[in-house]
Design a protein around this nucleic acid. Structure first.
Lengths: 255, 255
DNA sequence: AAATAAATCTGGTGTAAACCAGTTTAGATA
DNA sequence: TATCTAAACTGGTTTACACCAGATTTATTT
């Protein structure tokens, strides 16, 4: 008669510190996290495959995956579909009050920014858009979709809307860089006020595909509405960020 | 000879819209999400149990759980350990620039705030703390831990550090409300500047326990350093929020 | 009616095994 | 050498159990 499996002492038993949480997947998590924090694995280094980790830890693959999901939620690792798991690089620090634009603040942090224009078009304002811009529903707006990179890793996709009355012919300009600068230089349109919303979200179908991540991964939705001195809406921007790529930092004088 | 199981058409096959994603767990997700968005389930309503959903959808329990995790990441539902899954209430809107304090802005949104003092003590400043306060390592600091609720759901736990030199005897006051007001009223200490950091994180052991959620759940770490007019650090605050309880909204004039 | 004990229900964790569909790599071919 | 192809590998998804411990409810006792 054999010992019931659940009563047999598993071979990873002794790895667990005394009095510690006995959850196996946390043990696996800690072990991987230790390797990362120890510096054994540099930024963007590839982790052993799930099946290797499985045999290495003696856990079932489901358990190994639970540990990997945990580390992903913590922002320590990310994945490329069907390729592997990788160590997350340090996040970009984002200060909404210091409005310099993506290109300059990424560069200022010693990282390599890149913007890719995915497409532009003219759209009819939906009710929500019309409300934001203070125009009639159905009015024409410019829409541009861009993808932005840090060190060649896609970190956000954004959809920007601009009122053509403020920037006629905008789509003919070079939009691979700072849109704010184009507006300033070509149209003498200056941003005087920003309204920024941030909310944890799940990356849906379209965003996830554009970031080449699994749909449903956690992300951060940053919405920005820029106004000029007259209170007109200059730009409405929806940015979907990888949740591990961003750290928000604000410095505010209190009245 | 029987048909191989994986080739047999599963009984949920016809539920999937044409051309849609064939991933079963997303189908389950959509079905639950529809019920929520439809209003069949009000805020804080309890979902059917995992095993009920299982038989209701014909999926394995693991698949049902994948769907629930997805909805949790999206902030639509939350769980009480070993009790059930519940519909998330609307998030609180938080404006770091408008520094009124938790109690007042939660109330302003028609919700019911509550603060609970978990404990206070005097601690020796660690290197990191000493650096923030500009004191010597080992200097004494007040530490207070609090838990804050919205409509009787715990949404954040915080650890606050205060320099005793600015507010001697602080711990003898009533700290169940606004700390900023106590500092202002009792010590004539006014906050002139705030530095606020926000970063997605995983709720670790202690925070998760205090929020009565599973350790490792995604959260948002909001760190605030408050300075007075002389640039002295008045207060250093680490807030661990449930990720589904908060929406950050900032309105900024651009110089 | 209130306190207590037991049965039941619920999520939490773990195992094992398949099969699928992109990615990557190594080898064969032009 | 460059290109193409096929095999190997990787994560992605799903099934089906099993057992645990906390939460809840029910029945029982005081």
């Amino acid at each position: 008669m054999t010992l019931k499996k659940s009563l047999a002492r598993p071979d990873w038993w002794m790895d667990l510190p005394d009095g510690a949480d006995t959850r196996h997947y946390l043990g696996v998590r800690d072990s991987i996290a230790a390797h990362i924090e120890n510096g054994d694995l540099g930024h963007n280094a590839c982790l052993p495959s799930e099946r290797q980790l499985q045999s290495g830890t003696g856990a079932a693959r489901g358990t190994v995956r639970a540990a990997l999901f945990q580390l992903e939620a913590e922002g320590l690792i990310y994945r490329k579909e069907r390729s592997g798991w990788y160590v997350s690089p340090a996040p970009i620090v984002y200060d909404p009050t210091r409005w310099e634009g993506f290109m300059s603040y990424v560069k200022a942090q010693g990282r390599d920014p890149k913007t890719e224009l995915l497409g532009t078009c003219e759209v009819q304002a939906t009710a929500a858009l019309a409300d934001i811009f203070g125009v009639d529903a159905g009015a024409t707006l410019y829409e541009l979709r861009r993808r932005r990179y840090v060190d060649d890793r896609a970190v956000l996709v954004e959809t920007i809307y601009v009122d053509p009355r403020l920037a006629p012919g905008l789509l003919d300009h070079d939009l691979d860089g700072s849109l704010t600068q184009v507006l300033k230089r070509e149209y003498v349109v200056d941003v005087a006020r920003n309204r920024i919303d941030m909310q944890p979200c799940a990356l849906t179908q379209a965003e996830a595909a554009a970031l080449r991540v699994k749909s449903g991964l956690p992300g951060l939705l940053v919405t920005r509405i820029s106004y000029d001195a007259q209170g007109r809406v200059v730009e409405y921007d929806q940015e979907y960020w990888r949740h591990d790529a961003l750290k928000v930092s604000v410095d505010i004088r209190v009245g």
